[in-house]
Every structure is written in C-alpha cells, then in structure tokens.
Nucleic acid binder design. Structure first.
Lengths: 349, 349
DNA sequence: CCAACAAGTGAGAGCGCTCTCACGCCCCCC
DNA sequence: GGGGGGCGTGAGAGCGCTCTCACTTGTTGG
C-alpha cells in the first residue's frame, strides 16, 4: 500500500533538474555557502518544485551524525515519570530541539534487563547525545554513558558517589536548597516556632537538598528565637508517606505549629492527617509544599508551595547538550545550570 | 572529544573475523535463515566478541525502513498532554515498540507553523508509521497523513467530518459511552432522580460520547421512574469549568441530587462548588467523575469515577500500527479497537 | 551415471548522500 | 604579460549495509 510508489526525488534528480552537479545541490541544501547567488536561487527553485527532502539515512551514513537526541527515563514507574512535570520538561526539550531540527527519541527503561540493550544502543552511535532523568544512586547507565563517551546532560544533579567532583559532568538542577530555605524562612517570618519537615528519599539529591535548606533556614538568625531541634520525618515523596509522616511527627511532638513537606504530594497527605486530627490549617498548623503541581492551587486550603520553572529546565538541558555537541576545539565547555526556585504563598500558611 | 576514536566494527570486520562473507554475517544478524548452524554459531561469536552493532543508517538506506515510529501530540498545551494519562500511554507504546526493536520518535506540535514542517517530515519517509493524539476537528495533520499514505493509528476516535465512514481508518478508543452509561445507571440505582451532567468540549468525540452515555442511561427502564429532562452544563474538561458548570446547574435546579462529570478534573471543580454552597457529598448530591486520575482516590470524599486501561490503550495503538506495517498482501487489515471502561465506586456516590 | 534440483555461500552492485580534491576561471600584483 | 591566489564548480570515492544473482556443493531420481 505504501512505499511501493516512491516518488521521492533524490539529490541527483534535483541536480539534473537544475542543471548543476550533485555537489552543488548538496551545498545549497546545507547552507549554500560557496555557491553563486544566482545558482543558489535556481537550485532552491528546483528543490521546491520537486519537493525534495534529504534522506537522513544517507546523510547520517556519511556524516556520522544522526540528528537525534535520546531522552532516557529510567524506571518510568517512579514519580518523575508520572508527574505532570515530565510533560512540561519534554515540551521544553522538544522546543529547543526543533529549533535545531533535531529529533527526540524517547527511551523508557522498565526492566533491569533493558539496561544492557539501552546501553548498547546508546553507545552504538544511533543518537548524537542523551538527556537522562531520574537516575538513582549508582545507576549503571551513568557508567555506560561515561564509557561510551556519549555526550549527556542529566536532569537533576546526579547523586552517585564521586559525582560531585567529576569534571565535565553536565546537568540542570533547580535550587532545591534555596527553595526549601525560602519556604522555612517564610514559616519563621509568620511566627512559627516548631517547624517540622517531611523529606523524600534521601538517596535523591533533590530530597537531600531540600532537607539541607530546612536546616539552613532554622540556623539563620532573623531576630526571632532559634528553633533548637529539627523535627524530621520521611515521606517517600508520596501522599501516603506524607500522611504517615505527619502522624508520626504529631505523635512525637503535639506542639508542632508548621510543617514543610518536600513535595506537594506529601503535603496533601499531611493535610489529610491534620484534617483527621481536627487541626486547622493554617491556624493551628501551617503547611508548605514543594513543586507547585496543579492540584496545589485547588486543595482545601490552597497550598503554599515552591515553584520551579520546569519547562525552562527542559529547554536548558537540550541547549546544554547542543552546545556540547558543537563544541569547537578550544571553546570553553558548558557548565551545569541551577535554576531558581520561588515561593508561592497561598492559603495554607 | 567524542567520535574521533570510533572503534565500531562493521559487517566487514565481523566477516573477516569469522572467516565468512559480508552477506553471511548479514544473514545471521537478520535472523540467520539459510545459514548452516555451525557457521551461524561462529558468526554469533564474532559479533559478540567484537561488540558489533548494526549501523541503522546504512541499513535503512537500503531497506527503506527506518525502524522508527513517530508519536505525534498536537497542541501539547491541552489536557491530553499534561495528563498523567499521557505518560501511561507512552509507557504502553514504548513497551510494545521495544519488543519489536523499534524507536519512538516524540513529536510535539505547538505552533500552527509547525504543522507544515511536521507534515513534510512525516511524508519524507523518516519514520515507518505514526501514532497521533488529540487531533481536534479537521486537523490538517489528518489530511497530510492520508495524502502521504503514512500508516497511522489515532488515539481516540477521530472526529473530523466523514471520519465515521472512512475505510481503513485505524484508532484505539475507550468505551466512553458505555462508561458514562454505567456511571449514570449507578447513580439511578442509588436512588438519585435528578441527575445532571457536566460535559467536556463537544468537538471531542470523548466528550460527546460520554454525554450520549448519560442520555442512554436516563432512557433505560430499570423499574425506577424516568428522569424526564436531562440537565446539561459545559465544563471544558477543566476544574474551573466544572466549578462554574456546577454553580450554573444548581442555580437552574436546586433539587439536583447527583451529578456526572465528564472528567475527574471537572468533578473536583464541582466538589468545590458543592462544598462552598454547604451541600454534603454524597448525602445531598452524589458525584461521579471520569478518568480515575490519581488524585481522585485522595479527594474529600474519595471520588467515584470511571477507569480505563490507559497503558493498554497505548500498547494496542502500537500493536495495531505494527500489524499494519507488516501486512502481507492478502492479509486481513486490522480494525479499530474500543477498550472497556469500568466504574470504580468510592465515597462520593 | 548423469541430469535436475535444493541448499548454502560469496561477489558485487547500489541505496542517497557528503566531502575531498582537482580543475577552470577571474582578478590582482609585480 | 605571466604567475599566484582566491573562488566556484564538478568528478568520484566511499560511508555500511542489503539483496540479487551466480556459483559450488550435496542430494535425489530417472
């Protein structure tokens, strides 16, 4: 049905039509440098007329460039993938890639046995570079990528041992620590004196950084009396986890008058527990989340939270990768990027 | 930095190593039919040893197959893209494609001017087929695809004029009408007698089908007295829309004792309005949503809703496309698929 | 015992493109 | 007026693979 009629013109055909050589048409198609204006125009007309589109397979066979970038999501069962976030990041990535006429190859890894296949695939030169999300701990992909030398940018600061000092490591992260500090400082400014925190899994840098920010804010002297002891519970970045963590915190210290949850999902769980125990938000206990997911704006009460420009993070990842890809010898290599986080004050604090 | 050392072995190298011809290695790599078992094993060892991976560019240059499928999302600003749904569908698609060693090319369309580029891209033979989501009304892509003859499967039943009767049109949809009928029948079985509906934009078949299902259920005779007049309001598939629609419905008829919202998002808006007006759910007004998004399970009260197997829909789309791709002459062409929808009863009804 | 055939293998063309190199032309300078 | 240097163009090789076709070998049947 398809493919048997294949009227796609080749370079050859365009060249014949324009009365020039293949080489000249190729030059015009790829920027037109070094071709007389008049000829160039003529070739362009032929291209237009015949509806010529380059065959990328043939092109990439000789250039050794594929014009494609892999977006790799490890363990798509996890939070990162089901987040609405993820869609936004993809949008940012897609926008940037399109500007450069590059394709976006989506690679989802589910089973451990996929790893080897993917690693092989990535090393095989099928893509020019990769963007990787949600690698935990010592993810085997990191090593594979390093070995293969495939240019890669990570989404979120990588947390494997030694990542800190690895030179040339490229990532885009948001200022989790600063965002958390803002959130907790805000609670202090509101006069709260027993502020608890609910953290995500601390093997993820985002969770650890947010916890660090909490400690930072407690240690700041803003004239108000210091809160001596941190109150920490773990919520696994899920609503259920937040629910349990809040209960645990209240059991340990009923005097708590505020809680900073490391994600909106955990905050929603915390709200449920507070509600169940008859505590009013924000009168008795103030609540701040993190992420600014859409539902945060329509919970009861609306949730104070920390926002990050997710789409921009996506486009910066792509941009970083593209910059690395056409690095000329002698150019300064690009550096990791950390984007700003901003507190959004709503009804829950 | 990368690519200058390029130790990737070619077919030639493997052939030399195994002491056979290029053709034989090619045969082994592509299934091994017509090669003596002994030789085959020997070639496999060489492949393994050298770490040979076929160069897809070279391959697709001659086979005219790219081994890639485009997943096209039109207007990714819309609900369909930011849905958690979307991630699930992708997962289903990805799983199916991986089994067949096909790549997933993600194409997001944002601006009208992208359309032409994409249309050209799709017709240019860069992919073997396409999966398309969220095409509204007379989306230009539909025409482009038809013209180019690119094998395509749609996500959701297409709604453009004439789509109904178009032969060979392939799509995967969920039984929106049946799901809605179940939801409303459930409300009737609970003894509700003034059941309203909040619909999505009726230019999307899913919204229209759900409305039809509502009418179906009202018309069913189940022994209970019939509800004479349907009560319909429009909510645009958003929380805000649901909020406004619910207010409108209550203003028009304060006796309403149940509402079926065409999406969970609209249901959440409706809940807010009911809450604000001091109406108890489900005592005064029962609420049923549609989609079974994650937050549905943790709203207050938990939301009765209709679930569809989204991931399965994704994998069926991919499967349908792959079936169409390797259709031999004489095979029966695949047909559209409509998957089941299932009512999930929770606290709000 | 040889023709006919099947099965396994290799030689070689060619997919559509880029890119190097050589060539021709014109301009400038000595 | 001739040599050197640029610039624009074309010829041709070759990227790594598949696939057709011819060849060799082993098997069968007349």
């Amino acid at each position: 049905m398809h493919g048997d009629r294949d009227p796609r013109p080749t370079l050859e055909a365009v060249a014949a039509h324009a009365g020039v050589s293949r080489a000249t048409v190729s030059r015009v198609v790829n920027g037109g440098r070094g071709v007389r204006e008049e000829l160039r125009e003529q070739v362009r007309r032929s291209v237009e007329l015949l509806g010529y589109v380059p065959n990328i397979a043939a092109r990439s066979l000789v250039t050794r460039r594929t014009g494609a970038v892999a977006v790799v999501i490890a363990e798509p069962e996890t939070r990162v993938f089901s987040d609405p976030f993820f869609a936004q990041q993809l949008r940012g990535i897609s926008r940037e890639l399109r500007q450069r006429d590059m394709q976006l190859l989506l690679v989802l890894i589910e089973q451990p046995k996929d790893y080897e296949r993917i690693g092989r695939y990535l090393s095989a030169g099928h893509v020019d570079g990769a963007l990787m999300f949600s690698l935990h701990g010592a993810d085997p992909l990191a090593a594979m990528v390093r070995e293969s030398g495939l240019p890669t940018v990570f989404g979120g600061r990588p947390g494997w041992p030694g990542a800190e000092t690895e030179s040339g490591l490229l990532y885009v992260d948001t200022d989790n620590r600063g965002g958390a500090r803002q959130a907790v400082a805000h609670l202090r400014a509101r006069g709260r004196r027993r502020i608890a925190v609910i953290t995500g899994p601390l093997d993820q840098t985002s969770a650890q950084d947010r916890l660090d920010g909490y400690h930072d804010a407690l240690a700041e002297s803003d004239g108000a009396p210091r809160q001596a002891t941190p109150l920490v519970a773990h919520g696994a970045f899920t609503a259920e986890g937040g629910e349990a963590a809040m209960a645990e915190l209240l059991d340990a210290d009923p005097e708590i008058d505020a809680v900073f949850a490391g994600s909106d999902l955990m905050a929603s769980g915390a709200l449920r527990t507070l509600h169940r125990r008859g505590l009013r938000v924000p009168e008795d206990v103030a609540v701040v989340g993190y992420d600014d997911l859409e539902p945060a704006a329509w919970s009861e009460p609306t949730l104070t939270t920390v926002r990050q420009d997710v789409e921009r993070m996506g486009s910066m990842m792509a941009e970083l990768l593209l910059r690395k890809l056409d690095l000329e010898a002698g150019d300064a290599p690009p550096a990791p990027v950390v984007t700003e986080a901003r507190l959004i004050v709503r009804g829950s604090s």
